[in-house]
């Protein structure tokens, strides 16, 4: 999933100076699962905003809504009848949903209520870790299904570097060394000899380095 973190309310408040109505807009997908921007977080932020506005003596209508997705036009269309009641939207979707909402309603100010962090997985309740950077050219077959692009601090294709200590990365004891993991996996698969195969220079043109990307499937396109 896409993992996000709630922004501190202090960062959001200056954007809402002078607004008379604001919609706090959640998303039922990834940000719900990672507890940053689902229905519950919408309620919490809306409640906190109301208390702030009340203390400021401002009459601000704070609406709450959570869409199935903010990254699909048909769900965003559900706002069509109600959006005009609001001066601004604080979207708790990932950066994709925030932008897509703004694209769909060009005259509305849309502000981010979360920091979108990475594509990751839940290690346990309340702990999420990065697993993929969407580099566009998956190399997991070579590395025992452990990604050095997302999980090595230096994204080394032929690691580990000299800073790997007791399975941990040189940047900190809380960070696992991806290359230790890769080697453990290769060993478990009986493929440790593959370690010595040099992974060639990467084609980063399919990464963000190549510019904004698009996937087109002609067979399913309408």
């Amino acid at each position: 999933m896409i993992v996000a973190e709630r922004k501190p309310i202090e960062e959001i408040l200056p954007w809402l100076e002078g607004v008379r109505s604001v919609l706090v807009l959640g998303c039922n997908e990834c940000v719900t699962v990672c507890e940053a921007g689902g229905k519950k977080e919408v309620g919490l932020l809306a409640s906190a905003l109301r208390m702030v506005f009340a203390q400021q003596g401002r009459e601000v209508n704070v609406g709450e809504r959570t869409l199935e997705r903010q990254c699909d036009p048909e769900y965003l269309d559900e706002l069509r009848d109600s959006i005009d009641a609001y001066d601004a939207v604080v979207s708790l979707a990932c950066g994709v949903g925030i932008q897509f909402t703004a694209e769909r309603y060009p005259s509305k100010a849309v502000y981010p209520g979360v920091n979108t962090c990475f594509m990751g997985a839940a290690l346990e309740r309340g702990v999420w870790a990065e697993r993929c950077q969407g580099c566009g050219q998956c190399l997991l077959a070579l590395t025992g299904a452990v990604c050095p692009v997302a999980r090595c601090a230096k994204r080394l294709f032929n690691g580990p570097c000299g800073g790997s200590t007791a399975g941990k990365c040189e940047i900190g004891p809380d960070v696992e060394c991806a290359w230790q993991r890769i080697i453990d996996r290769l060993k478990a698969l009986g493929r440790l000899a593959d370690y010595e195969t040099l992974i060639p220079v990467k084609d980063w043109s399919k990464d963000r380095a190549g510019g904004p990307r698009k996937v087109v499937r002609e067979d399913v396109r309408s």
Binding site: F157, G162, G163, E170, W204
Partner: peptide, 24 residues
């Protein structure tokens, strides 16, 4: 060389490149 990670230095907020690795 790969180089130490930038978090050890005086510009810990910098981007890193790692287009190639030391072997490449």
């Amino acid at each position: 060389l790969s180089g130490d990670h930038q978090r050890f230095g005086d510009h810990a907020q910098g981007q890193n490149v790692f287009d190639l690795d030391s072997m490449q």
